[in-house]
Design a protein around this nucleic acid. Sequence first.
DNA 1: ATGAAAGCGCTAACAG
DNA 2: CTGTTAGCGCTTTCAT
Lengths: 324, 324
Amino acid sequence: MAVTIREVASAAGVSISTVSRAFTAPDQVGERTLQRILEAATRLGYSPNPAARSLRGGRTGTLGLVIPDIANPFFPPIFKAMQARARRQGYTLLVADSDEREADEIETIAAVVKKVDGLLLWASTLPDDRLVELSRQVPLVLGNRHVDGISEVHVSLAAGLTQAAEHLRAYGHRRCVFVDGSRPELSRGKSIRESFAAHDLALIELGPYEPRFETGVHAATLVAANEATAVVAHNDLVALGILHQLSRLGIDVPGRVSVIGIDDTLLATTATPSLTTIRISAEEIATKAGDLLAETVADPDQPARKVEIGSRLIPRASTGPAAA
Amino acid sequence: MAVTIREVASAAGVSISTVSRAFTAPDQVGERTLQRILEAATRLGYSPNPAARSLRGGRTGTLGLVIPDIANPFFPPIFKAMQARARRQGYTLLVADSDEREADEIETIAAVVKKVDGLLLWASTLPDDRLVELSRQVPLVLGNRHVDGISEVHVSLAAGLTQAAEHLRAYGHRRCVFVDGSRPELSRGKSIRESFAAHDLALIELGPYEPRFETGVHAATLVAANEATAVVAHNDLVALGILHQLSRLGIDVPGRVSVIGIDDTLLATTATPSLTTIRISAEEIATKAGDLLAETVADPDQPARKVEIGSRLIPRASTGPAAA
DNA sequence: ATGAAAGCGCTAACAG
DNA sequence: CTGTTAGCGCTTTCAT
C-alpha cells in the first residue's frame, strides 16, 4: 500500500487530524506546523486516498460526462473544454461513451453514477421517467434534451441559422435544400424552417435520414435534381458527403451550389473547399454546463434551470454567389 | 445516502457478510438465500458503493487511459474500443487528455493515478526516469513509447508502408515525397525510408514539421516543385492539407499526384477524393493493450513485455497511375 | 453455509 | 491551533 496520513503525522510529529487539515483547510493550521507537514508529505510521497475521502465525505471529486459517440467530432472539443474546467474546479472528469444505444446508455450510466458527484448527460435516449428517477439519485444536468424538472443546457441554432439565411440571401440564393439527419425529437427542421421563411428563402426538406456521410452522398444528387443553389446539411459530416458527391458529379462548389454545415468540427476546416458552417462553441458549452452542474452538485434541491448555448455562422469557401 | 448492504441484509434476514458474498462470491451462498438477497437488493435498488469497496479491497475497478489529444481523430476509436473491452472485463475506463504538454500530462496523471488499478499512457512526453518511478506506483503500460523495464504496445507501420511502396511502385511511381510531422524521437521517417528503398523508390523527405493541416498545405507546393508523383503524409490530417492545396493549385489527385495518409481516421473516409491511407486498427490496440494492462494489473511484478500492433494499406481514390 | 468483528484511510465533530 | 474519537460501507478472516 501507499503511504498514509498516519505516517505523515508521525513523521511530522502531529496528529492525523492536523495532517488532514493541512490538506483540506490549510488556514486552520499553524504556519510552522503546516510547513513541517507539507515537507514530510512531499518527502514521503504522500497524497490522500480518494477512496477513503469519498467513503467518509460522500464526495468523489469526479464529475461524469456521458456522450453518445466520441467518434463524432463534435464531442472531443467538449471533452477537452469540460475536462479543463472540471480540473480548475478541483474535479476529475469521467467521460463515458454510450454508443448511441439505449441499452448501452443504461449500462454506461450504471457504471458511472456511483463514481461521480454529478452527471452531465448529452442527448440522452432514455425515456423521461428514467431520467427523472436518475435525477433523484445524482445531481443531473441534461444536454440537448428537455425533461420537466431537470436542469438543461440547450444549443440554439437560431442565431446561426438566421445568419446563414442572411448570408445566402445576400448572395442571391432563393431556393435551398435542408438535409435533415436528426432523430425526430430533436429535429433541426423547425428552427431552419422559421429562419429561412423569415428571409423569404424557399426551403425543400429532405429526410430525415441518419446523420452519416453517405446520407450526404445520397442527398447531393437530390439537390441537383431540385434545382436548388444552396444546401444546409444536418451537420458537417453530412455536408462533406454532399461535397464529395457534388465533386464526383462535376458540380462546382460554390460555383453552382453553396454548401453549409453545422457544428464547425475539424471536418469543416479540413474540407476542400473549406466548409461554411455554424459554430457551436465547445468552450461555451463547457463553461455553462460546467457551472450549471457545479451549482446542481452544490445544491441539488434548487429548481431546475435552462441555459442557452448560442451559435453563429463561420463563412468559409463553400458558399458564394448563386448561379445565374 | 443510498441504500447500504445493511438494509439489504435485514430485509433478507441475513447478515451483511452474506450479502457481501452474494455479490462477490455467489457460489459460496446457499441457493435459496442467494435468491432472497438478490430479490431484496433489486427491490431496494441496492448496488455496492465503489468507494467502500476500493478502500477495503485496494482495487478501484477502473482503468486509466491518458492520451495526448482526444481531438486528434486517431484517438476516439481507441477510446471506444478500450471502453468496450474494459467494461467486458468489469472495469470502468477513465480517460484523460493531457493536451500534449508535459506539465499538463503530469497534472493529468496525478489526477487519475490514485483512482485507477492500472494506467495506459499513450505517447507520453515524460522523461524516462519519471515513467520508471510511475511504474513503481501503479501498473503501467506505455503506448508508442519505449522505456526499459516497462511494458509497451508499439504500432509498427512497417507492413503498411511496405504495402504502400508496393502499391505506388505497381502504379509506376518512382519519385515520392514524405512529409514528416513527428517529434524526432518517434519519427516515422526511418521506417518509410527502409520500405521505399527496398522497393527502389526515390524518397524526398520534408520536415519535420508539426502534424497539422497547414503543414500539408505548405508541403503541397513543395511536392509540386520536387516533381514527385506521390506523397506520403505523416498522418491523414497532413494529407488533407496536401489535398486541399493541390486542389487550389489545380493539380489533379490522383491524376498528377497520388496522396497517401496514415491512421485511417474519419478524415480519410470523408475526404474528396477519399484518401488512400494506412490503417492502424483501434480494436487491435484495445485488445492487445487491454490484455497487457489487465495482466500487468493482475501480476505487477512480471517482466515487461512488448506487443506489436500491425498496420495495412487501405487503397482508396487518392492514389492512381503515375503521370507520364 | 452463515455470522461476528476488525479494520481499509480519511474527515468531522467535539474537546481542549 | 491541535488532538481524540467515531464511524463512512464494505470485504475478509475466523468461528461456528
